[in-house]
């Protein structure tokens, strides 16, 4: 948005995050209705994403984001291998650093979804502690850059927590509303929301996202992973170019 319209970065971030709330509200509702959002997992991770988003919003208000944008690029590159080759189940059965109350069985995160017609897939969820920390990071990035943060949430759920791709995308859609709203409320309170800019962006994405969720439902999972990995690589490249001053 900054690139295309040449507007103040803070106003752009604030308008963008308001638009993200709108997208996620529509696509989140669709994901839940279609049974591809793990609501329990989403609510658990939202504790971290909402807190992270508030910190990210204040960072965006306080900082010039160049170094942080570069760090974001590093995070995206690091996520690619985990997308392509998920970690699988932890060897010690998930015990260890995680406090007993956050053990996967205690959180009852395992779930199922309909992969294709009449084909139910059950899955386990691993490493809630790691997922929680990375979700906090996703929240910070979301508030800082005015993005949904699915670009980190999806690799976290798929790569570290062992969640199937479609459920990772659906749960991410579901979580982004709360994450982005936390950041957007900070921006709104601080007077960074331009009503005309933000509402125009929000109305625009509502139309676009209705189409996108439908595509994700139909697309082959393997192809979805490849598309997502390619997007990660492209975003990382543009982040590095921005940080290096090649792109504005």
């Amino acid at each position: 948005m900054t690139l295309a319209l040449g507007i103040d970065i803070k106003l752009a971030v604030a308008a963008s995050i308001v638009a993200v709330v709108a997208t996620s509200t529509g696509s989140g509702a669709a994901s839940v209705r279609r049974g591809v959002a793990n609501t329990r997992l989403g609510m658990f991770l939202e504790v971290a994403t909402s807190a992270g988003a508030i910190s990210g919003a204040f960072l965006a208000i306080a900082l010039g984001a160049q170094v942080l944008v570069a760090l974001f690029g590093v995070a995206l590159v690091a996520a690619i291998p985990f997308m392509l080759r998920p970690l699988g189940a932890p060897k010690n059965g998930g015990a260890g650093l995680v406090p007993a109350i956050l053990h996967p069985s205690r959180l009852r995160l395992s779930g199922h979804f309909e992969d294709s017609k009449d084909n139910l897939v059950a899955y386990e969820v691993h490493r809630p502690g790691t997922g929680f920390l990375l979700s906090g990071l996703a929240g910070v990035v979301s508030g800082l850059l005015g993005i949904g943060g699915g670009i980190i949430k999806v690799p976290t759920m798929r790569g570290a927590m062992g969640v199937p791709m479609k459920v990772a995308v659906g749960t991410s859609n579901f979580m982004i509303g709360v994450t982005a709203a936390a950041a957007a409320l900070v921006f709104f309170g601080r007077g960074a929301v331009d009503p005309v800019l933000a509402s125009t962006a929000a109305l625009g994405v509502v139309v676009g996202s209705r189409y996108a969720t439908r595509v994700v439902e139909r697309i082959d999972t393997h192809r979805l992973v490849l598309v997502f990995s390619a997007v990660l690589a492209l975003m990382a490249l543009s982040m590095f170019l921005k940080a290096g001053g090649v792109l504005p």
Binding site: A22, T25, V32, T39, R40, L41, R108, V125
Partner: peptide, 25 residues
């Protein structure tokens, strides 16, 4: 198929949540 564990997806919440989200939107 193994008996699907229903825990992670509370059935009535899956009805209420989309309604709330759509009405707000």
């Amino acid at each position: 198929a193994p008996a699907p564990p229903l825990d992670a997806r509370p059935a009535d919440l899956e009805v209420v949540i989309p309604k709330v989200l759509r009405a707000g939107l």
